[in-house]
Write a protein that binds this DNA or RNA. Structure first.
Length: 285
DNA sequence: CTAGGATCCTGTCAGC
DNA sequence: TGCTGACAGGATCCTA
């Protein structure tokens, strides 16, 4: 579930918790689910986090011993820091505020000043320890395309021609084409650009493609602004769950509700096996 | 090479 | 109250 803005929000939040002296050294790594941790926990015991990076939806912890941890949350992963303060991000469920560890806790990284919990209901996510020099060679990282802020409309337009028969929604979900969008922001970006999600990628004009890249930037920035504060509120709260989607989503999860641009009812269909939300009037096929 | 579907896994919700 | 099937903010693997 977590897409680029959620991962970036986690990165910013964890900067204050685990980098250098903030979290201190790692004392112990507890792996509760073997498939959630690739490598040996012992490789990072005694190490300190010196840098937190993000590549698309992947979070990268660089340690002071030439090792790095690549973390991918996939659908239901979440990271919860429990120290003096509590900070949580990723898949929004009750684990944000629940007692930890619990049934969904897959890995615990115990620092001197707190513990980082990696929870993941569906076990699709993972933490992978590799030499820092090998991060860029990782099979997933190496294939990542540019993020929308670095990509021009022209570049995307050119890439679309190689997948001209596929629905545009499916194409922009492919991280090797454009990096960072997931199911929410793909729908939101298409709405922004007034493009029907089932349109063949090859049918988009250069101008539409330009608008689509712009939309990707805008909707993710909007979420970044909303997400950061909402997650803080979420954690600080007494247990009330705020739906931060409501703060920025125009179409996602709004099926049956009126389009904020034209009043038409938002529809939900299936595209490439994924639930897809759009306005039939603003986004003509 | 591309496009599309199945698959990994657990949990929740709607409908009977 | 069970049971069943659909679905879930991701990515990869397999097949045609």
């Amino acid at each position: 579930m977590p897409e680029l803005p959620e991962v970036e929000t986690i990165r910013r939040g964890l900067l204050k918790c685990i980098v250098r002296e903030k979290g201190g050294k790692i004392l112990e790594v507890r792996v509760e689910e073997a498939k959630s941790f690739i490598g040996e926990g012992a490789e990072i015991v005694g190490a300190t986090v010196v840098r937190l990076r993000r590549k698309g939806k992947a979070l990268i912890l660089d340690f002071d011993n030439r090792k790095s941890a690549i973390i991918h949350l996939r659908m239901t992963g979440q990271l919860v820091w429990v120290g003096k303060e509590r900070f949580a991000g990723g898949h929004p469920n009750d684990n944000f505020i629940a007692e930890l560890p619990n049934k969904q806790t897959r890995v615990e990284i115990v620092f001197e000043n707190g513990t980082l919990f990696f929870n993941d209901q569906r076990k699709f996510g993972f933490i992978k320890v590799v030499p820092t020099s090998e991060v860029e060679k990782d099979s997933f990282i190496a294939k990542l395309a540019k993020e929308p802020w670095e990509m021009t409309g022209k570049e995307l337009f050119k890439k679309l021609q190689r997948h001209k028969g596929a629905p545009i929604k499916s194409v922009i979900l492919d991280q090797t084409i454009i990096c960072g969008l997931g199911n929410i922001y793909a729908d939101e970006a298409l709405f922004y650009a007034s493009i029907h999600p089932r349109r063949k990628a090859g049918s988009l004009s250069a101008q539409e493609t330009e608008k689509l890249v712009e939309g990707a930037r805008v909707v993710m920035e909007r979420s970044l602004d909303a997400g950061g504060s909402t997650i803080r509120n979420y954690v600080k709260s007494d247990g009330t769950k705020g739906d931060y989607l409501e703060l920025f989503a125009e179409v996602f999860n709004r099926q049956g509700k009126p389009c904020r641009r034209c009043g038409e009812r938002i529809e939900k269909i299936k595209v490439g096996g994924r639930g897809t939300h759009f306005c039939p009037k603003c986004q003509k096929e």
